[in-house]
């Protein structure tokens, strides 16, 4: 059976340290002013603020990046087939094909796509990471670290998480770590009612 690569993110373990976000940025050459992977503070008014009213306060975070949907809206709407699902279930962008119409951005229910509105700016003045450099006027987003995962390595965000909140694996393999975690912990998909079938599950 073909692979269906996916991830679980344990929100009980996530402590909002943003290490995965920065690891991702370095690994993937993500330009200044945008992130492929960002950490949202749930319900709070600002970063790292609690929700609720004293003394019933709660504080938690939710990392968000492309969820690699099985029924991906972005893949459907791309007029030139630049956004596609590869054979292992990653949703990827062909940077040489994208025409910059941003229809995928309007179609994505999760606001996880980022566009190169300008010539990409990189603070050290050179590229970093393994991912190829993207040009002005095209879309980009999380690739599940295709450069690493194609070689059998884990995505960078999984590797660098100090709390071991993230797990990566094949959702089609019932014995994989991710499949077990989803079964045992009742993994939830974000906005499941949209029917996009994300391959990233949150464990609450």
């Amino acid at each position: 059976m073909a692979k269906k690569l996916g991830m679980t993110i344990d929100l009980k373990r996530c402590m909002g340290c943003h290490t995965c976000s920065l690891g991702c940025k370095m690994q993937n050459n993500v330009p200044m002013g945008m992130l492929w992977n960002r950490i949202l503070t749930i319900g709070g008014e600002d970063v790292d603020t609690a929700r609720g009213e004293f003394p019933s306060l709660e504080k938690s975070w939710m990392p968000l990046s492309c969820l690699h949907c099985e029924n991906a809206s972005c893949v459907k709407v791309c007029p030139v087939g630049a956004t596609y699902r590869d054979e292992d279930g990653r949703v990827l962008i062909n940077y040489d094909r994208c025409i910059g119409c941003r229809y995928c951005m309007a179609a994505c229910p999760y606001n996880v796509r980022v566009f190169n509105w300008q010539k990409p700016v990189r603070e050290p003045g050179h590229s970093y990471g393994e991912a190829p450099v993207r040009a002005k006027g095209i879309m980009e987003k999380c690739t599940l670290c295709v450069e690493r995962t194609a070689k059998g390595q884990e995505p960078r965000c999984v590797e660098v998480c100090p709390a071991k909140a993230r797990k990566f694996g094949d959702l089609n393999d019932p014995n994989s770590e991710v499949s077990k975690a989803i079964r045992e912990r009742g993994g939830q998909q974000l906005l499941a009612e949209k029917g996009t079938k994300p391959q990233v599950y949150y464990l609450r």
């Binding site: 002013g33 992130l35 960002r38 949202l40 709070g44 190169n116 974000l190």
Partner: peptide
């Protein structure tokens, strides 16, 4: 579409 601070990156350096 998904709420939470600090929100969405604008894409401008």
């Amino acid at each position: 579409l998904v709420e939470g601070a600090p929100g969405i990156t604008l894409g401008q350096a």
